[in-house]
């Protein structure tokens, strides 16, 4: 019978088993290490103010060659888009390690949606790739949106693409202040902001 590992004849069964296991672990860790990449991005406002404490996330994108495919569609064989949090390593600088190879998009927004959320261009990570993505710039142009509701009532503002949420209060003029296009947001009761983070794609 053919042995799966030819070492028993040389070292005995126990030693051989240990060696086989060690090799397997070594091989697996090398493979895993090879496939691990990192991405770093800075987040700031249009006027160059560094944003600390932003919510930065990464999503995987389907692989080209079809460039028209949107990154928001779940990859083949998966039901949902994988959203990975990118933690802040230094002030305003966000790094995600151990990302498998593939195509990604990064999103960023500030915790109170005082600025318009930003999205990166699609980028590719290879094996053992360490990539610095051009700074994500949060916009600051916006509008006052009239909301039907009582003055002082709270509503949950949800950015459709990034899924970022913030509670806003209807002011004396019956409006709330938003950044960017009003159609880029969902407007929900305040309880929605307390629920788990969801991506409104």
């Amino acid at each position: 019978m053919k042995q799966p590992c030819a070492l028993p004849r040389l070292y005995g069964l126990r030693h051989a088993a240990e060696l086989c296991l060690l090799s397997a672990i070594l091989f697996a860790s090398v493979s895993v290490a090879r496939a691990q990449s990192s991405v770093t991005v800075k987040v700031e406002t249009l006027h160059g103010r560094v944003i600390s404490g932003a919510k930065v996330s990464a999503t995987t994108c389907p692989e080209p060659p079809n460039p028209t495919t949107k990154c928001f569609e779940p990859p083949q064989g998966k039901k949902a888009i994988e959203v990975l949090d990118v933690p802040e390593k230094e002030t305003g600088k966000y790094t995600k390690d151990r990302l498998p190879r593939g195509f990604y998009l990064l999103f960023a927004c500030d915790a109170t949606l005082t600025y318009e959320p930003a999205q990166s261009e699609r980028f590719q990570l290879g094996d053992n790739d360490s990539k610095k993505i051009p700074t994500l710039v949060l916009g600051d142009t916006g509008d006052e949106v009239p909301v039907a509701g009582k003055v002082g009532a709270k509503i949950c503002l949800i950015h459709k693409v990034t899924g970022c949420k913030a509670t806003k209060e209807i002011d004396a003029q019956g409006t709330i202040s938003i950044r960017g296009d009003r159609d880029h947001y969902d407007y929900k009761p305040p309880e929605a902001c307390n629920q788990d983070r969801e991506r409104g794609l």
């Binding site: 949106v145 009239p146 909301v147 509701g149 009532a153 509503i155 009003r182 407007y187 009761p189 309880e191």
Partner: peptide
Amino acid sequence: AKGPIRVVFPKPGETP
């Protein structure tokens, strides 16, 4: 010109 945003506020005990 767009009308005001309408947010449905559920009453206590009511599901949105």
